[in-house]
Amino acid sequence: MSVNSTHQACDHPARDIAIVALGSIVVALVAAVVMVAFNARALAVFAASGTSLAASLGVGMNILSHVKRGAQPK
């Protein structure tokens, strides 16, 4: 790439969604580990990890939508 070349932003929505989904899975796994560390029952571990997965995926997708909307050329 030369010094005078223009920068073109890549638009890979599948990659962005995959990153958000994988981050949400990590959050859910951390929640499950924390619940197991507190000797919670299996149903409580499942509920906590599912809730944290849904919440973090929802927040991540909202943030992604907001960032993509702000990056639109005018």
Rank of each mutant, 00 (worst) to 15 (best):
M1I: 04
M1D: 11
S2I: 04
S2Y: 07
S2K: 13
V3I: 06
N4K: 12
N4W: 07
T6G: 10
Q8K: 00
Q8Y: 10
Q8M: 11
A9N: 04
A9R: 06
C10L: 09
D11M: 07
H12G: 02
H12V: 02
P13R: 01
A14E: 08
A14C: 08
A14S: 14
A14Q: 10
D16F: 00
I17R: 10
I17C: 07
I17V: 10
A18G: 13
A18E: 08
V20R: 08
V20C: 12
A21S: 13
L22F: 06
G23Y: 02
G23H: 00
V27C: 04
V27M: 08
A28V: 05
A28L: 09
A28H: 05
V30T: 12
V30A: 15
A31R: 10
A31D: 13
A31E: 08
A32F: 12
V34Q: 12
V34H: 12
M35D: 15
A37I: 04
A37L: 04
A37S: 03
F38Y: 06
F38K: 12
N39W: 04
R41H: 07
R41E: 01
A42F: 06
A42G: 05
A42Y: 09
L43G: 09
L43M: 00
L43W: 04
A44I: 07
V45C: 14
A47T: 00
A47Y: 03
A47W: 03
A47E: 02
A48V: 05
A48R: 06
A48H: 09
S49I: 03
S49C: 00
G50W: 06
G50V: 02
S52M: 08
S52H: 07
S52P: 09
L53A: 13
L53G: 03
A54E: 02
A54K: 00
A55E: 07
A55C: 00
A55W: 00
S56A: 14
S56E: 09
S56N: 10
L57I: 11
L57E: 01
G58T: 13
V59N: 09
V59G: 09
G60H: 12
M61H: 07
M61F: 05
M61D: 05
N62C: 12
I63Q: 08
I63G: 11
I63W: 06
I63M: 10
S65C: 01
H66A: 15
H66K: 15
V67P: 11
V67W: 12
V67D: 15
K68A: 11
K68I: 07
R69N: 06
R69L: 06
R69E: 01
R69C: 02
G70C: 12
G70S: 14
G70Q: 13
G70F: 01
A71S: 15
A71W: 15
A71C: 11
Q72T: 02
P73T: 02
K74R: 14
K74Q: 12
K74T: 13
